[in-house]
Amino acid sequence: MTRFTAGKLHVHTSPEQLAKVTRALRATGRKIAFVPTMGALHAGHRELMSRARRIPNTVLVASIFVNPLQFGAGEDFDRYPRPLDADLAACEEERVELVFTPAREALYPPDAQVTVHAGPLGEELEGAARPGHFSGVLTVVAKLFNIVRPDYALFGEKDYQQLVLIKKMVRDLDMEPHIIGVPTVRETDGLALSSRNAFLDADQRAAAVALSAALTAGQYAGREGEQAVLASARDVLARTPELKVDYVALRDPDLGPAPERGDARLLVAAKLGDTRLIDNVPVLLGRPDLAQHG
């Protein structure tokens, strides 16, 4: 195998070489914990890596690849930040041992035709606003899983619909990785960390806090039921006219219809200028006394 020194950062651009290394490591009894990213790493990515490091007997692998398949026409693929040197330095600080940084042609040969279809959920919420987005996400994740062959793969809950769809893909296609969702990391004012936050100017950054404030208001209204949750969130968003709200939705944890009582998920998407932002929080629906006594 390609020489591997535990505790040191190794960067691979070849899928074949990385696959050889991870197969050899698994043959020695090591487990692979995998954090796929599009780079522009921030504290949210670092939290994924930190959580992965805490899994016993694992080698931590990360990928950095801006996936063209998940960007639609007119989206921000060309301006998406690509600070590779800074990202590699962050990986080294987080004690990542293998980093995969493939070129586009390495993952998508010119004659590639087969993709993963995301199913009906892939056409709702974010999928309705970004047709084909989730098929692009699932296709690249499936390819990365086939190359890395991880035992564990970690994804942030900020991209909650993505997390749910990846779990469904792993289940439906009999894939091996155990998928671990990691809670959203936020700024001190509540804004969810995202690489796209770098696109916001000062006024937009101040306005963006309305998303997390709306979600918090919805959480507090949870005991009053679905309509109160949605009304509370929408009321907060309406006070920030700069936000062009796409949706505010309440669903069950698997993104089916919201239950009358119990665990649910509140999701929001909006644009500030040309930048699309998403966020979500868990919500407990129904009064505790009613839930206890049925």
Rank of each mutant, 00 (worst) to 15 (best):
V209M: 01
G218V: 04
T115E: 13
A90E: 14
G294F: 15
L255C: 08
D189N: 13
G222P: 06
E224K: 07
V236M: 11
H178R: 14
F34G: 03
A118T: 03
A89Q: 15
K20Y: 04
E126M: 04
V96P: 00
E94S: 13
A217G: 08
E16N: 10
V35A: 04
L121G: 02
V164S: 06
R26M: 08
P150I: 00
S14C: 13
P259A: 14
S135K: 05
T184C: 00
E94F: 10
A43I: 06
D78Q: 15
R46D: 05
T101F: 11
L191Y: 01
P177I: 07
P131A: 10
L272Q: 00
I179G: 02
A217C: 07
D246V: 06
L69Q: 09
L267S: 04
L48V: 09
A103G: 15
R276Q: 12
L285N: 09
L163A: 13
L98P: 03
A129R: 10
A90R: 07
K167M: 11
L154W: 00
F34Y: 07
R205H: 13
M1Y: 11
G222I: 03
D78G: 11
M38H: 09
A6I: 15
L272Y: 01
L277N: 06
F155H: 13
P15V: 10
K167C: 14
H178T: 15
P120Y: 12
F100Q: 05
D203W: 05
A90C: 15
L84Q: 14
D289V: 15
V141G: 01
D76Y: 11
N197M: 11
L284Y: 05
H133A: 07
Y220V: 11
D172L: 12
E260N: 07
D279V: 03
N67P: 07
R130H: 06
F4K: 07
A233N: 06
I278W: 02
A129P: 00
A221Y: 01
T2I: 13
D263E: 09
G39T: 10
R149I: 01
T37P: 05
R261Y: 04
D111I: 05
P282D: 05
V182N: 01
E187N: 04
G156Y: 02
I180S: 01
L9I: 14
